[in-house]
Design a binder for these strands. Structure first.
Lengths: 424, 424
DNA sequence: ACAGTTTCCCGTAAATGC
DNA sequence: TGCATTTACGGGAAACTG
């Protein structure tokens, strides 16, 4: 008895939110129609889990569920399974009174508590009584969606550590560290499953440098999920990709994880206007910027624009932001972004994502002057040390005898960079 | 008995959402401490409301509430009152079965059902039993916040019609129309209470023209709340003001309700660059635009930019949008907005609301090139019929002998409009 | 005071009912 | 099938609680 003759199906819930409905399905592995109508299965939350009551003082929950179900033949292949569709959890708030033995103060955060759901069935057969039982993999129970990232961190850490050994629901009382290899594959998998593209070696190296002091170190749970919130930062980026950058990420146009130093060294020997796209390392909620190189002042300069946040990307897509970015220096405006590193003309990479101003679909809009949002920067490079003998230009004192031809050349350059010129 | 010796206090709830907690307070008007501890008050939902069961088949609700309360002396002035803090409603879903008499099909929308809450108390005094009862004003019960605007329309309509006559909970079975005067004051009041500024005569006239076919007409409920959704449109604007424009509205910088024709006639004799701010008449969810006049081509032209939506205003405030609006015509860029109608220089009106790029508060931002969002339009006025004999300027064929001084003047004008110039 | 946690509830999307 | 209405629940903020 209690062999795994029952199995809970692949898409188990991983994070359960109190008050939110969830579903689970169990399948009877021995596909014998004889058992049909004989098996009554019932899910039980945290059955026999000792952590609940004593060891760590896990929270207790009321478990609302469908009535016990008889296994049905539901699937095309005739397997016997039961689906519980209306289950939900609610925290039981009666920890203080009615108990003589004092509860142990829970040293874990709620997102570190691992719970399980067991499916139990009793089979009466040939005068014998068989107890059949199947357990889900661990789940984390949260009460608010702001706990999802932490809960997900726990799930990932557990999955990376769980071999075939018995489940340790108190894993986070003394969480084992991960090797860099383990963490790297864990992280890469997140980007692959969420954004259809894993992390490459360069990206992983950057993360390794950021997370670990010595390459041979092990990564500790606290470092990953608590102290420096590395995971919270990465999760923000995953969410950014999901919401606003899935295409660009999937096509590999976003280098993303590159630090400033490496950005500099990658760009410094490239032509002016070469740029790459990086995630902000300082903004927790996920933000993205681009860095470009400019040799026009004679010396190499690498600039990065203030990162774009999710809120901004929801009204201005990154391709459009790149397409229309305008930098004004010394009164001259132009778009400093020309080649996506290493040498792809920006339109070749992003052209297909530009919003075409196209004929307004809305009739009422036709009478309005069309517009678009754009991002504008002013003068990032005041000449390092302006020669004192060359007076700064000033509106009031401008000399109308300034070299007109040079100025005209600049004007014409500006005009050339306005793609709309040909439509005039 | 049943005189109004009890009163429910001013801030009654007007719209109740099922499943959402609400509070009500009743006060005993006769302030006699003798009654203290003798009065038990209980709120009852839709007590004796005949519409509920038969006339119109109103929905039925379960009413969750605090236990009956004894009137307490709570207030500074020693008045007796009781506060019910945890009341909520839940729709009762058992209309079909168990009843022999078939229910009348409800001809009303749920937001037209008017319900009431009665507070009842029994006073045993000197051997006599006194029934005391107080009713709330009508409330509308909704189940989702997408019903709030419709519900609010009902509340307003009721309030405008309710004189001292007994409450008619079936008012919307045959809703009386309003005179324009009534509707005007109803609307103006909304803008006053929400935005600290009522509607002026010009704004009301525009609305009157839009809503009524003949000035002497009455406004019917269907026109206001159903067929053309006039109210939904206005409510979207109220929400836009509340979320993004409260200061500007309060200071009267937003003309808002002006149709195109009047916009044209107001602006046509004003200098080029005079503009006014209008609400979009076509976008239901609340949007705002500006119209400006341009005499520079020799003939009067009034343009309006594609309206800004709430989403856009959440990342770019209207003052900033005005401050940095850039129009590119014939390769020349400038801000066409100069004077807020009638003749206020735009910075005098909006200057104090501009976002100062200021020293980045965030240390980490210092290394980034600062940027701002801006709105850009291209060439709204291809010359009506360009004289064939004057060749259009073209990048490849531009004559370097073009009047340099004139071009320089233009450049300088451009530069003058860049406030950042002085920082270079 | 404060951080971790839960509750509350708006607003949107999806589901439901008629 | 479409529209009216309700339900579901993510997400941000307030409230709670030790």
């Amino acid at each position: 008895e209690k062999q795994p003759v029952m199995q809970n199906l692949p898409h188990r819930p991983l994070i359960l939110k109190t008050g939110v409905r969830f579903k689970m399905t169990v399948r009877f592995l021995a596909n014998l129609p004889v058992f049909k109508d004989l098996l009554k299965v019932k899910p039980i939350f945290d059955k026999d889990v000792e952590e609940v009551k004593t060891v760590n003082g896990f929270r207790l929950f009321d478990f609302n569920l469908d009535d016990s179900k008889v296994l049905d033949v539901d699937t095309p292949d005739g397997a016997m399974m039961a689906a519980f569709e209306h289950m939900s959890l609610k925290e039981k708030k009666a920890r203080t009174k009615g108990s003589c033995e004092p509860y142990v103060l829970n040293p874990l955060m709620v997102t570190e508590e691992l719970h399980i759901i067991r499916f139990v069935a009793v089979l009466h057969l040939a005068g014998e009584t068989l107890d059949i039982e199947a357990s889900s993999l661990p789940v984390v129970v949260i009460s608010s969606s702001n706990q999802v990232p932490s809960a997900w961190a726990s799930i990932m850490w557990f999955n990376m550590l769980s071999t075939s050994e018995p489940m340790n629901l108190s894993l986070f009382v003394d969480p084992p560290p991960l090797s860099w290899q383990q963490l790297a594959s864990l992280l890469s998998w997140q980007f692959l499953s969420m954004g259809q593209r894993p992390l490459d070696q360069d990206q992983l190296s950057m993360l390794q440098d950021k997370i670990m002091d010595y390459p041979e170190d092990l990564v500790h749970w606290n470092k990953f999920s608590k102290d420096e919130s590395v995971w919270i930062w990465i999760d923000g980026i995953l969410d950014l990709i999901k919401k606003h950058l899935s295409d660009l990420w999937q096509h590999g146009y976003i280098m993303g994880f590159v630090n400033k130093q490496r950005t500099s060294s990658l760009l410094q020997n490239k032509p002016t206007g070469t740029f790459l796209i990086r995630f902000s390392e300082s903004i927790r909620d996920g933000a993205i910027t681009f860095s470009w190189v400019d040799h026009s002042t004679g010396e190499k300069r690498v600039h990065a624009v203030e990162p774009y946040t999710k809120k901004e990307l929801s009204v201005l897509s990154l391709p459009d932001a790149i397409n229309h970015y305008t930098l004004t220096t010394q009164g001259r405006s132009s778009n400093p972004l020309v080649y996506l590193y290493p040498d792809t003309p920006k339109d070749a990479a992003f052209g297909s994502y530009y919003t075409v101003p196209g004929p307004s679909t809305n009739k009422n809009m036709k009478e309005y002057v069309q517009r678009r949002l754009a991002v504008v920067s002013i003068n990032p490079t005041p000449p390092p040390s302006p020669p004192r003998d060359v007076p700064q230009m000033d509106v009031d004192t401008v000399d109308p005898n300034t070299d007109f031809f040079q100025r005209l050349e600049e004007i014409l350059s500006d005009l050339l960079e306005l793609p709309e010129w040909s439509n005039l």
